[in-house]
Nucleic acid binder design. Sequence first.
RNA 1: GCGGUCGUGGCGAAGGGGUUAACGCACCGGAUUGUGGUUCCGGCAUUCGUGGGUUCAAUUCCCACCGGUCGCCCCA
Length: 426
Amino acid sequence: MINAPRGTQDLLPGVTEQWQYVEEKFKELCRTYNYHEVRTPIFEHTELFQRGVGDTTDIVQKEMYTFKDRGERSLTLRPEGTASVVRAFVQHKLFGQASQPTKLYYAGPMFRYERPQQGRMRQFVQFGVEALGSADPAIDAEVISLAMYVYQQLGLRSLKLVINSLGDNQSRTDHRNALIAHFAPHREELCQDCQLRLDQNPLRVLDCKKDKDHPAMATAPSILDYLNEESHSYFEQVKTYLDQMGIAYVVDKNLVRGLDYYNHTAFEIMSDAEGFGAITTLSGGGRYNGLVEDLGGPETPGIGFALSVERLLMALEAENINLPIDTSLDCYFIAMGEKAEQKAIELVYQMRKAGIQVDKDYQAKKFKAQFKAADRLKAKYVLVLGDNELAENIINVKNMENGEQESVEIDQVIPYIEQLLQRGQG
RNA sequence: GCGGUCGUGGCGAAGGGGUUAACGCACCGGAUUGUGGUUCCGGCAUUCGUGGGUUCAAUUCCCACCGGUCGCCCCA
């Protein structure tokens, strides 16, 4: 037997409805915010991610699905969405369009070669948005508010929004140097990972769980103290807008993003829900001024976020939220006898053309078993056509909820059902 | 990539070196020969993740691999 590859999953009826529901909701809310869908390829030139995401990141160093095609080109299954969207933005010169900023959303699978565990798949699905072309702190607030709104509209309550500012390049460099200077004397006392982090990305040392009690941690220089005037003021404005929208947040000066392209605003939304497991991050995002330029476009600021659908559904489950998904069936057609069976094929087709949801038996089941099947399918009405009915040119229509049954002329059955269904919805 | 743990029917699960592998749910059939959700009766794993080893004998012991799961790393 061949199973789905490690870290991938099949989504089957029963859960695909949930996926469809959250995807529809996400798209609906994006339209409310005037974001438009962009669809980019699932694989790209490897170089795009090396340059976009950053050569030193874990994603590029050890998590990419990279392969050579038959033309010896190095391609990579996309590990995230932003690089591709920015590439498309540059390639199609969307920066030249009349209406700016360019507000885009996407939904689709991403791929990272990691050890799977709950909430972490090798193929996973992200919904995300990118707003390109505006350096207004209000759009940072807009993007954050959209992310929060998606979760809230789906019913999640136990959410924690964490924000930070990584500052501009100058602020980051100053802070980085300060961090290295601060920790260098303690190098030998830090864990092995941190000794490496100190060279590659000293910001991460602050995030370490092993060394969190080291006295040097408490006195470490904070990025917030190294923000220059402009960066500081930008962050203050973002916070002010969030306050005005009534969106609660906590500032975490140790919040670090895993990708190199981020600067200024960084944020993460986490689940507070009981028993959610080790992974609590539902979505992450931030500003990436400079990325468009890095990928060959004009100097263009940008900000976006991505959320994991797998984790979103986990959060819904952790909070015991049932999405309003209707799994019922309008009608189930039961035919008894050869002639009735033939008539049934025709009538079922006509009903379907009239937009009525209907199914019938194809297993040669006994009459009683067909009723059972109708019950299991949550059919609202069962239509019975047998020799008796055929002789009288009628169909018996049974309301499965209250058990009442009425005889209807065959010609009238479609308008009759349509009327019943309307009343039911009314 | 590292460590813990687990792998028995469609699902949940008991068992334990020796020959009919419990039980529950689901499913199928019958009681009820054309009307569901209840009840009763019956049926339903040549087989215990895969491969190899030990043994007269392995689903049960050993090893490897694969997969799930939890944690680390990291992230969405």
